[in-house]
């Protein structure tokens, strides 16, 4: 029932190293401030208590999006809006573009960063679901070393990540897409600007009409975003025939563990995993010109 933020200490490191040291020294008492949309709302609602914020907004060199032979590189301060307006993203990583484009608030996209969106570790993140399907890697800096980690291993639970004390995410690497790569993103919401009840991202590599490789990522249906591995299995090596697609969709629904909350019911979510997974694969088939 409060309208203002709690007073806190404010740090504005000039380098990643400095930020990392602050995070190490203060541990759980501080949080990283990037876009701030989620963080400040939660502090205002007293859902989290902080003693300090480490604002990384003025660290140089973290706001970029570029594509090279290693893939698409996104900095920790790159906003969703920058990505949405990037030609590389729109033309070469359509799955990511579609997910960002489905977020209907220009304000949130101007302020919010892709990395921040991943780090808040909500299982409903459209960006995270699409990046999981794209097999994104997290670039992580710690006090003394850097490491990278697949997004797939990044989440430990609701709002919990694998970051160690002193670590922060400095960027994302999305690997290059193989030839014959297709993707589809779908989500269901209550009203257009709401966060997803269920979201699904599918990325598949098709060669000669056959499904060589496929990744299916699901959101809002488990404590973290998840991959539907059994469903992927059901598609891999097939020609995406109707039976295979239906089988995959059924399996996906079995793999999830949704809950009932204010946005939807567990039962509905499970059912929708089936519908959206099937529709996403069907969309890929249409785009790839696969018959049947």
């Amino acid at each position: 029932m409060v309208r203002v933020l709690t007073p806190f200490e404010y740090f504005e490191p000039k380098t990643v190293e400095e930020a990392s040291n602050l995070l190490r020294d203060y541990g759980e008492k501080v949080r990283v401030l990037a876009g701030g949309v989620d963080l400040l709302a939660r502090i205002r609602r007293r859902e989290i208590q902080v003693e300090g914020l480490v604002c990384i907004q003025r660290i140089p060199g973290l706001d970029y999006v570029r594509q090279d032979s290693e893939g698409l590189k996104i900095g920790a301060l790159t906003t969703l809006r920058t990505l949405e307006r990037s030609q590389e993203v729109r033309e070469n990583y359509r799955l990511l573009f579609d997910a960002i484009h489905s977020i209907h608030s220009i304000q949130v996209k101007n302020m919010g960063t892709a990395v921040g969106n991943l780090c808040i570790a909500t299982p409903a993140s459209d960006v995270a679901v699409s990046l999981l399907a794209l097999d994104a890697q997290m670039k992580i800096a710690g006090p003394s070393s850097e490491r990278s980690m697949p997004l797939e291993n990044f989440y430990l639970g609701v709002k919990r990540t694998a970051l160690q004390p002193g670590e922060l995410v400095t960027g994302i690497l999305v690997p290059p897409l193989p030839k014959g790569s297709f993707g589809a993103f779908m989500k269901l919401v209550r009203t257009a600007t709401d966060i997803a009840k269920v979201n699904v991202a599918v990325r598949a590599t098709l060669r000669n009409g056959g499904c060589e490789e496929v990744r299916i990522a699901l959101g809002s249906v488990a404590p973290t975003i998840v991959r539907a591995r059994k469903a992927e299995e059901a598609l891999r090596g097939t020609r995406l025939e109707r039976e295979a697609v239906v089988e995959a969709a059924e399996r996906a629904a079995e793999e999830v563990n949704p809950i009932t909350d204010i946005r939807s019911t567990a039962e509905y979510r499970r059912e929708m995993v089936k519908v959206l997974t099937r529709r996403a694969v069907e969309k890929i088939k249409v785009e790839a010109g696969v018959k049947g």
């Binding site: 401030l33 949309v37 400040l40 604002c55 907004q57 304000q107 949130v108 101007n110």
Partner: peptide
């Protein structure tokens, strides 16, 4: 609470003035 920060729509209620 939208205002334009360097021309871009921002939510002023979730923006720290200092930033």
């Amino acid at each position: 609470c939208t205002v334009l920060v360097d021309g871009k729509p921002f939510l002023s209620c979730l923006t720290l003035a200092i930033t």
